[in-house]
Nucleic acid binder design. Structure first.
Lengths: 214, 214
DNA sequence: GCATAGTTCAAACGGTCGTTTGAACTGGAG
DNA sequence: CTCCAGTTCAAACGACCGTTTGAACTATGC
């Protein structure tokens, strides 16, 4: 088996999503990234052009398989009869959690990266994430509206935003309490990605079914 | 009416929660804060000691009335019969949204500040928020467990974390879409704080009632 | 051999960061 | 008035930031 040599570009992307996921965009320096990636600082500007362009490339690479899987599931659902709310929620949540958490340690890094960037304090950074999931968003909204005809467009959008936000929070692992905190002794949902996805779907299905007024 | 002269310390706290709420901790410089507050840079270290201590003081001041109101509501609920899940959820959500959003423009700034800090990318910053709402958290968890005896402790903690996360996301206004985005044309929930609180409570009550397995 | 395009490198650029210093100002107490 | 604690100030500290430069290295094609 030939050694799959990682290019400098790949190492930069790998380290970038790890570090950006830990400290956020502003809280992570290019020097910290390039040192960890065993690359020269100038390599960032050579391969990507700027710090923000590096982030953009990392977001695009991380979101690509998630978007592909979501599109595939939506196509499949719409090929059959009109999908139920639960089927639509599954088609959104599971690609975001399972596809990314199932493959060991590295998947958790990618998930945390996506979840953090989605709710970065800076609007400009959040928009980088939004731009990557933009086209599929209106498809979900339309499908949810058809599956929930009694709910107003505002209510559907409200539910969709809550779903998106909760997913991002679990991806970013920001909901796991501080190890030394007074509350529960940890392990809220970090045990098994599959179980987390199942719990989150159940939670959201109940909320969508009876929690969307007007 | 005598002029209520703002002290330098107060102006620093006011501007800090505004700027930290916009750009996050790492993305906001002390110089940006002190210029907007018409104060000298050294005033921060004189009155607070460091940038992080300024943030800590701002978080404490912003959370104080919310925590007080939550305690008051919990006391009142536990004085009567065993509270329902809806009553507990209201006692958590409404102090976080109404108490802070009802008083005009300034309340929205405080809410955004709290919501942003609660999910700052840096663990150390998030812990500053957690430390401020620490003692009341176990009270809520215990009360929720009593109100939902059929749910496991893990499930209750899962629901509580989702509630806390969704509240913070709405407080931070991170769920309002980009003005120019493809999705809904904005106004997901920004219309009226009271309506937002009502929608969020309804959403969460449904999720707690039928969405917590095991 | 030589030329060439692609990549890496050490070093430096100007700028901004949080923090510190020591002097200047302020207003009430003795 | 003098004194003094409390506060504000301009200026500078060293460190780190993202970005740029221009030379050095690498590998492939002729």
């Amino acid at each position: 088996m030939e050694t799959p040599v990682e290019t400098t570009r790949e190492r930069l992307l790998n380290v970038a999503e790890q570090r950006f996921g830990e400290g956020g965009y502003e809280g992570t320096s290019l020097r910290a990234i390039t040192v960890a990636a065993a690359a020269n600082i100038a390599a960032v500007n050579y391969h990507f052009g700027s710090k923000e362009a590096l982030l953009r490339a990392a977001v695009a690479r991380a979101m690509a398989p998630v978007n592909t899987e979501r599109r595939r599931r939506l196509d499949q659902l719409e090929a059959g009869g009109p999908p139920t709310p639960e089927e639509l929620i599954r088609a959104f949540i599971e690609p975001g959690l399972e596809l990314v958490l199932r493959r060991g340690e590295r998947g958790a890094v990618v998930a945390r990266f996506i979840g953090r960037i989605a709710f970065d304090p800076s609007r400009r950074i959040r928009d980088l994430y939004a731009a990557e999931s933009d086209p599929i968003e209106s498809r979900y909204l339309a499908a949810l509206q058809r599956a929930l005809p009694q709910a107003s467009p505002d209510a559907v959008a409200f539910g969709y935003m809550n779903m998106l936000g909760l997913l991002a929070l679990h991806q970013s692992q920001a909901l796991s309490p501080t190890p030394g905190a007074a509350g529960s002794g940890g392990a809220v949902s970090t045990e098994d990605p599959g179980k987390l996805a199942e719990n989150l779907v159940t939670f959201l299905v109940a909320a969508f079914d009876r929690g969307l007024r007007t």
